[in-house]
Amino acid sequence: MIIVEAHRALKHAGTQATLYVVRGRYWFTDGRNTFIPPLSPHFGGLWEAAVKSFKHHLVRAVGYAVLTYEQLETCVVEIEAILNSRPISPLSSDPNYLRPLTPGHFLIGGPLTNFPQENLLELKPARLSLWQHAQQMRQHFWRRWHKEYINGLNARSKWNSTAPNIKVGTLAILKDNSMTDTSPMLWNMCRVIETHSGRDGIVRVVTVKTANGMYKRCVTKLCPLPTDVSDPDSATP
């Protein structure tokens, strides 16, 4: 939310301007390194939550496989890239711009990319080379982690109150397992270009624009990214 607030305050001035403000305000610049106390991971709730997510899915993706040092290093580095590719907030209000702000922008100044790989999920590890085995573990991690992350963004509580309708121009992640299950770091981003409300005025269906075309989807298939933390109408429906 710190990144979103800084990006909004600068009126979408751009990635570099947002990074400069956040670094200057929240990073230590007096030459001292400040660490959390020993055995106190709760002091770093945000980054320790990311470490927990990494460990949880890494253990289940690797299982009881015996890896070489090079395999383990490759797998860990590529999983780090997956975690740092997650969308945080829109970079621009331009309806034709579908790229979000990610943690990768703070590391290298731009989005993290990846070469396309063949689907190795259904193959037995004994048939794979060391490189292919590392890619298979990465694909297993992606399939587990990205579903959990998207479901966490789109969590729905009891309908005790009316949620605000999704708005035209909202940037969101489109849930489509057939496209992203075997493509690590491929986030299916979309922009809402039209809403379709029912007789009660509630929007349940929208028309979205993706990199591959325009589609009509139910709002439960969308995970809107936050745009303005001070605007109650920007809450996730």
Rank of each mutant, 00 (worst) to 15 (best):
N151A: 09
Q132I: 05
T162W: 03
A163P: 00
N114M: 06
R191A: 10
Q139L: 07
K158R: 13
K175N: 11
T170C: 06
M189F: 01
L130K: 12
R138I: 14
W159E: 13
R138F: 02
R191M: 09
L130V: 08
Q139H: 04
Y149E: 15
H146S: 15
Q139C: 02
N165H: 02
P100N: 09
A134M: 03
W159Y: 10
K147F: 04
M179D: 08
N177G: 10
W131R: 15
R144W: 03
N151F: 01
P184T: 08
T182I: 15
N188S: 10
Y149L: 01
N119C: 15
L120Q: 09
T102R: 07
L153D: 06
F115G: 00
T182D: 10
R191Y: 01
Q139M: 08
T162Q: 13
Y149W: 13
V168C: 08
T162K: 13
H105M: 00
A155H: 14
G169Y: 00
S183W: 07
W145K: 07
Y149K: 05
L171Y: 00
P184R: 04
N165K: 05
I108Q: 11
M185R: 12
D176P: 00
P116G: 04
R127W: 03
P125F: 05
L107G: 03
C190Q: 01
Q132Y: 02
K167C: 06
L153V: 04
W131N: 14
W187Q: 00
L112H: 06
K158S: 14
H105W: 09
T102H: 02
L186I: 05
R144T: 01
P116T: 09
R156Q: 13
A126Q: 14
S129H: 02
F106A: 09
H140Y: 03
P164H: 10
L128D: 01
W145G: 02
P100V: 07
S161C: 11
F115E: 14
T113A: 11
L130A: 13
I173K: 04
S157Q: 12
L174M: 05
F106V: 03
M189W: 03
K167D: 10
E122V: 06
P116D: 06
W131V: 12
R143Q: 15
N154F: 01
M185K: 05
N114Q: 13
Q117P: 02
R143T: 14
Q117L: 14
W142E: 01
K175M: 10
L153S: 07
Y149H: 12
H105S: 06
W145S: 03
G109Y: 04
F141D: 08
W159A: 15
L130G: 00
K158T: 13
I173V: 15
L171C: 06
A163L: 15
L123K: 15
S161P: 02
P116C: 03
L101I: 10
R127T: 14
L121H: 05
L123E: 08
N177H: 11
M179W: 05
W142D: 00
R99F: 00
H146E: 12
L174D: 00
S183N: 12
R144E: 08
N188Y: 10
A163M: 14
L123W: 03
G169M: 08
T113R: 09
K147M: 09
V168H: 00
R144I: 12
N114G: 06
L107A: 11
K124G: 11
